[in-house]
Computed example of a mutant assay.
Amino acid sequence: MTAPLPRLRARALLASGAGLSMAAALTLTGAGTGTATAADAPSTTVTPAGHSFAAQLNGKATFKAGSVTVTCTTSGSAPTAGSTNNRIPDAPDNHNASGPVSNNINPPTFGGCTTSMPGVKATVETSGTWTVAMQNGDPIVATLGMPTAGFKLTTTGLASCTVTAAPTAPASLPAVFTNGDADNPSKITLSGAPAAVKVEGGFGCPTAAKTSTFSAVYDVTDVTDPASRVLVGE
C-alpha cells in the first residue's frame, strides 16, 4: 500500500529479526487517485460505494525474521467516527477504468503476540496512515501500504529488541483479495509478504536481519450494511 485496499475507488494486517517478523496492514485508502500499474491494466470497481468496512484477522498472523517467529492472535482495522478511513469512495470514485482503486485505513492493531523464543514476550505498535489498493484481475491483486516506520515490534525478557518495519521508506506488501459470497466474507490473504526491517538491541536480537515476512488472512466486512459484501470487479 504504498499502494492502497479498497479506495476501493476502483482507481483505485511484520516481523522482527533473528526470528522476529514484521507485520503488514490492511489499508483501504480514502479518496485519492490511484495509479495504474500498466497502461493496459483492466478496470476496477469496488462496491458498495460509500460504505465503511473493517478488516479482522481470521486465525493467526505470523511475522518471521531469521530463525524467530512472532505470532499474534488478534489484529484488525476498523472505521472511526469523524474519519474517512476504512470507507469505500462514493461513486464514481469507486471505479477506475484502467487501474487499481485505493483507500486509506486506520493503522491495524495487533494483540496476543508471542515469540518462538523461550522467555521472550512481544508487543506491536502501529502508527500513521495505512493504505490498500485493489486491482481487478485473476487473481485480484491487493497491495497493502505501510507508512515509514509505521510498525514497531518490541520484545522483552531474555532478549530486548526493537524491530521497525519500513524503517526508511514506505513499504508495499503484496496480497490477494478474494470476493465473498452469501455465506462467507471477502478476504485479503498475505503469504510470506516481504518488508524491510531495522533490528536494534543486544544479545539474542537478530540485528543482521534486513527483511522479514508476514502471513495472515483478514476478513473484510461491510460495517454500514453487515448483510452486504465488499466486492471487487470490473
Rank of each mutant, 00 (worst) to 15 (best):
L173D: 08
F110K: 03
A31M: 09
N85R: 13
P167K: 05
Q56D: 13
A193Q: 04
G145M: 04
G50R: 04
A24E: 09
A91V: 05
L144Y: 07
A49Q: 05
P89F: 01
A78V: 15
T168D: 15
G59Y: 04
Q135I: 03
S67F: 09
L231D: 00
S83F: 01
S77I: 05
N136P: 02
T126Y: 04
F214C: 08
S172K: 10
G30I: 09
S67L: 13
Y218T: 10
S16G: 15
A61D: 08
M146Y: 02
T148N: 09
T35N: 12
S83C: 01
T73N: 09
L173W: 10
I188L: 15
A65Q: 15
T71L: 06
D222S: 02
P107R: 02
Y218G: 08
N96C: 08
V124K: 04
D219G: 01
V132E: 14
N58K: 14
T47W: 02
A142H: 11
G66E: 06
P6V: 12
K187V: 03
T164N: 06
K210D: 11
V70D: 08
K187L: 07
P170G: 13
P92E: 04
T44S: 13
T44E: 04
T62G: 02
A122I: 05
A31R: 11
T211V: 11
A12R: 10
A41W: 07
